[in-house]
Nucleic acid binder design. Structure first.
Length: 325
DNA sequence: CGTCTTTGACCGGCGC
DNA sequence: GCGCCGGTCAAAGACG
């Protein structure tokens, strides 16, 4: 890895969580030459890159999930977060060329992003082709993909310091796969939004370099609101922007080991009656967090518009900010 | 009984 | 052409 990646420094903030009684660190994470490799890529990149490079640009995570950021196609790939890995090299190259490379071949991740119809066809034909030879169907889908450029699916990733892998985000997800990740003892899980006709997917994996960090990658944008019948959640949750959660306690911390800023946003177990949504959250021992508190002053020095954070937490904040130690 | 997870098999892209 | 690898499918099982 060259030090070139340093110029792609980005800060991340984990949006929010609906976990009850669980304290989670939401990480505002920066990539550096050593940690590197949050990919920034887009299909119509120039403008989007400008957005990313504008330090004053702040997005609500809710906006992102609800698809109101139509022109915002920054893509963060979760497959190559760490500089030593092979995919990371590829990604860095893409980052460097994204503005001029329309086709990009942004790793297999985004090229795999298929539209709904072709997928349905594929499924049907796969079934039917079991004893008829799937050659035709394969070719058909291939030709289709060749002829028409697939729309690139907006994607972003973030790291969260949490002992829970699958973080509740208000939507309902169905797990459809799990794969071992090369060079990592931790598997990657694949989830799909259970709402009909919603194509949003997400991947969840644990960082092998820092097992306390969970890497979540969203792909696509929800075409619906947060389901009101979310299991285990109070009905009628609509996630109004900037006030999605009754935050009970929050502070911002700095973890020198990860070169990142960590938003610690949590609710106390005693204050809520709603149980966690699924068995995955039925952890008898509450997850622990370790952060070092950072003074507001210090934070303001690093993030001049920290006032925004106070207002929107929990929300998704994306900005480019050189990390100073 | 409906929903969700698990898990082995399969597919397609890509590098060699 | 082959093997690796990431992503997906789908049957079976678990669970409430």
């Amino acid at each position: 890895m060259s030090g070139e990646a340093a110029r792609d420094e980005l800060l991340y903030a984990h949006p929010y969580s609906l976990h009850e009684g669980i304290d989670i660190d939401y990480s505002l994470y920066t990539s550096t030459a050593s940690t590197t490799n949050y990919i920034v890529d887009s299909s119509s990149s120039a403008q989007n890159m400008q957005n990313l490079e504008d330090p004053s640009h702040t997005y609500s995570f809710t906006e992102f999930l609800h698809g109101s950021l139509d022109n915002y196609n920054a893509i963060f790939s979760g497959a190559g977060f760490f500089g030593d890995q092979k995919p990371a090299v590829k990604m860095k190259e893409i980052v460097g060329e994204s503005a001029e490379t329309p086709n990009g071949s942004v790793s297999s991740l985004s090229s795999e992003a298929e539209d709904d119809s072709s997928k349905g066809d594929k499924d049907k034909q796969l079934k039917g082709s079991a004893d008829q030879g799937g050659e035709d169907s394969k070719k058909v889908s291939k030709m289709k993909n060749k002829g028409e450029k697939k729309p690139r699916v907006p994607r972003f990733a973030f790291m969260t310091k949490s002992e829970i892998d699958h973080l509740e985000d208000g939507y309902r997800w169905r797990k459809y796969g799990q794969k071992a990740v090369k060079n990592s003892p931790y598997p990657r899980s694949y989830y799909r939004c259970t709402t009909q006709k919603c194509l949003v997917k997400k991947r969840v994996e644990r960082s092998f370099q820092d097992p306390s960090m969970v890497i979540t990658t969203y792909e696509g944008q929800h075409n619906h609101h947060v389901p009101t019948t979310l299991r285990g959640q109070a009905a009628g949750l609509t996630l109004p922007p900037h006030s999605m959660l009754p935050i009970q306690s929050s502070h911002v911390g700095f973890n020198p080991h990860h070169q990142g800023l960590f938003f610690h946003v949590g609710r106390h177990a005693s204050e809520s009656g709603t149980p966690p949504a699924s068995a995955a959250y039925n952890n008898p021992t509450p997850p622990t967090t370790t952060t070092t508190t950072l003074s507001h002053l210090h934070l303001q020095q690093q993030l001049p518009d920290y006032g925004l954070l106070q207002d929107v937490v929990p929300s998704f904040i994306l900005k480019q900010e050189p990390y100073s130690q």
